Amino acid sequence: MRDETAEDENWGQQFDRLPATPDERVVEARPTRTEVVEWWVERFGIDPKMFDGYTFWEKGAGKIWAFNGEVVDPIEVQGLGMRILRTRQRHWKPSTNAVQRFCRDATKNVIELSPGEATAFVAGHDQQLDWWEGDWGYLTAAHELAGEREPLGVGLYLHGELRSTVPKGRQEELVKLD
Rank of each mutant, 00 (worst) to 15 (best):
D3M: 03
A6T: 01
D8Y: 14
R17V: 12
R17D: 01
A20H: 10
D23S: 15
V26M: 05
V26F: 01
V27Q: 14
V27N: 04
T32K: 12
T34H: 14
E35K: 06
E38M: 13
W39L: 01
W40T: 00
M50K: 14
M50N: 09
F51K: 07
D52I: 06
D52Q: 14
T55A: 14
F56M: 10
W57V: 01
W57M: 02
G62D: 09
W65G: 02
W65S: 15
E70I: 05
P74A: 06
E76Y: 03
E76Q: 12
V77Q: 12
Q78A: 13
L80W: 08
G81W: 06
R83C: 01
L85A: 08
L85H: 13
R86Q: 09
T87V: 13
R88L: 04
R90C: 07
P94R: 02
P94V: 06
S95Q: 13
S95Y: 02
R101C: 08
A106W: 00
N109F: 04
V110I: 11
P115K: 04
G116C: 01
G116K: 11
E117S: 06
A118H: 11
H125Y: 12
D126W: 07
W131D: 06
D135P: 02
Y138V: 14
L139I: 08
A142P: 01
L145K: 14
L145M: 14
G147K: 10
G147E: 07
V154N: 13
V154A: 09
V154G: 09
G155M: 08
L156R: 05
Y157F: 15
L158H: 08
E161I: 11
L162E: 06
R170K: 13
E173G: 02
L174Q: 08
D178P: 00
